[in-house]
Design a protein around this nucleic acid. Sequence first.
DNA 1: TTTGCTCTATACAGACCTGTAAATATACCC
DNA 2: GGGTATATTTACAGGTCTGTATAGAGCAAA
Lengths: 187, 187
Amino acid sequence: MSVLREKILHVASDLFQTRGINSTGVNTIVAVAGTTKMTLYKYFHSKENLILEVLQKNHQDFENWLSDKLTKNTKKPAEKLQKLFDFIEEWVVAPDFRGMAFIKASAEFPDEENAVHRLSAEQSRQFRQYLAGLAVEAGVRDADGLALQLSLLIEGAMQAEQMKRGCGAIKYAKKAATILINSALKN
Amino acid sequence: MSVLREKILHVASDLFQTRGINSTGVNTIVAVAGTTKMTLYKYFHSKENLILEVLQKNHQDFENWLSDKLTKNTKKPAEKLQKLFDFIEEWVVAPDFRGMAFIKASAEFPDEENAVHRLSAEQSRQFRQYLAGLAVEAGVRDADGLALQLSLLIEGAMQAEQMKRGCGAIKYAKKAATILINSALKN
DNA sequence: TTTGCTCTATACAGACCTGTAAATATACCC
DNA sequence: GGGTATATTTACAGGTCTGTATAGAGCAAA
């Protein structure tokens, strides 16, 4: 994998998050990345293609990081659900946190037929499925229901933290999650 | 208030929600509204100004609708918190629901110094404050905490429903809210 | 009919956008 | 050195964007 390709992906991801996708032109991306449009269009057939790859990379990075944390720091399956929000908080309070990519992408591309919107929706679904897997392992009966509720808290908190840094949304989301998890485990 | 001004506001709001703000040009707005750019720029000094007015109108319409519903359909203060999510659901399942305006606006304008972003953040804060008022009336001790948690559920559910209509997010958000409210009332 | 107001029609300026063409430069492998 | 792949440079086409200038149409009141 070319180093320039990686650089473009990284720079594009950064600019998309800080300035918005539609407000970031390819001219800006290549200027910051220190290359030219010809190189960008060689690796990424179009801007839409670049957006899709950036989204995919961000999502994979997040899920890899999270599942790594979970497998390394927890032993029993039930523990994972409990500690989940500790790691989410760690992710959110990181200085380079800029919100969840697929949430913002779906806002910028509201048309349900649009490729970017569809990928965002798919990633949202995948994330809920991952949470549902944790809930199943923990012995929750309505695993899908709890997963959906936790995803609302997580995505809501990330949205809130992106809108106003340090607003403490993730802390209260964690408290709410504990209550919901305990309630779900009792049924 | 001029009828053309109202028409422009309404059309702009609709297009911003369905196509995105940055993807909607003033040319499109005036064409759909059946007027010209000269008239638009007469009433709204700039496109940014129009965006701000659209946001403000949407937010006021929502809060007015919600508080109307609450005052007309509930009697005791504690009831309002319980019934809140019924009305939110009613709002979300309406066929013309297109997501919460200020969430999408803040995603399209991520810069915290930007006027649109600042208004969005302010509206999010106002909404939480409104919820906190309901929690106080209901006798919740940590009213701000519960309000924040409920706002996460609501905003998360609206985001999810906007991403994929009929995904049932609001139903599970309601269940989660009931648990959280009951838990908060016990403390 | 004249005055005054709102709205329309049309054209334009200047900037930015995505995407491409063609020629040149750099580096590495044989 | 020669050949090859990769990257740069510069320029451009064709489009869209916000915002403005200018001239005229429609209409109501005096």
